[in-house]
């Protein structure tokens, strides 16, 4: 008996719907969490990361 025989008897095709529900659930959870007011300050700080990425101590000459 091959693997495909076992799998086709196992009637697994409904698993795709299970996956859909799981993924949708996780996604909704992420969405709710992202927009929670308690996170605002943290995320605002995060959004400025690209702009504060060069805190330079001393320019030094090296490397060509």
């Amino acid at each position: 008996m091959k693997l495909s025989d076992i799998m086709s008897y196992a009637q697994l095709s409904f698993y795709t719907e299970v996956a859909l529900v799981l993924f949708l659930g996780v996604f909704i959870a992420i969405t709710i969490r992202t927009f929670m007011p308690s996170r605002s300050r943290e995320l605002d700080a995060a959004s400025r990361l690209p702009l504060e990425d060069d805190v330079v101590l001393t320019p030094r000459v090296a490397e060509r």
């Binding site: 943290e42 060069d54 805190v55 330079v56 101590l57 001393t58 030094r60 000459v61 490397e63």
Partner: peptide, 19 residues
């Protein structure tokens, strides 16, 4: 010669302190 700026930053603390 290219300038290579020296950056300074604090290493991450072992235990996370909530900002």
């Amino acid at each position: 010669k290219y300038d290579v700026p020296v950056i300074e930053a604090a290493p991450l603390t072992k235990k996370y302190v909530e900002e």
